[in-house]
């Protein structure tokens, strides 16, 4: 696993590169650890509060630890009318956690999201940003079984 210091340093010369750096850290760690926010503040010449302010403004970035598989359910209107609610309940039931939580083994995190731009196939979930279209509650166990 690449070190967050190295990752952030590689964006040092990029104007406004802090968001790119956060994305890169999150790709490795699944979230942005507090030390990485501090590091980014130093590299990009911001106060820690400002660097934290950037990280927490964006819902795609997380400063809380998350599981290896981040499952996000779209709940925007087109997915809402296509039955997003039943799908999310099926995930909660199968994983034994509520939206916003991570399973005890650190494998799965369940989140809600707004539209992910795949609305030709509502309802839509993403697993680690990979979209799955036309998901039904019945498919949930099979989808989870694919996550090794």
């Amino acid at each position: 696993m690449a070190d967050y210091q190295e990752i952030i340093a590689s964006y040092r010369g990029t104007p406004g590169g802090i968001i790119e750096a956060y994305h890169a850290v999150q790709r490795e760690y699944n979230y942005i650890p507090a030390e990485a926010v501090k590091e980014a503040a130093g590299v990009f010449g911001l106060s820690e509060a400002q660097a934290y302010g950037v990280a927490t403004f964006y819902s795609y970035l997380s400063v809380e630890p998350r599981g290896r598989y981040i499952i996000r359910m779209c709940e925007s209107a087109p997915c809402h009318i296509a039955g997003a609610e039943e799908v999310i309940q099926a995930f909660e039931h199968a994983l034994g956690i509520k939206v916003g939580e991570t399973t005890a083994d650190g494998k799965f995190t369940l989140e809600l999201t707004e539209c992910v731009g795949q609305c030709q196939g509502t309802p839509v979930i993403t697993i680690n940003s990979q979209p799955y279209a036309g998901v039904s509650a019945e498919q949930v166990p099979a989808i989870l079984a694919q996550c090794k």
Partner: peptide, 22 residues
């Protein structure tokens, strides 16, 4: 450059702020 899940960043001046790293 990548956004990070904020709808308002589609507004052109918010988008500019975001490219600047804010």
């Amino acid at each position: 450059r990548m956004g990070a899940g904020a709808y308002v960043c589609g507004e052109e001046t918010a988008l500019i702020e975001s490219i600047e790293g804010h």
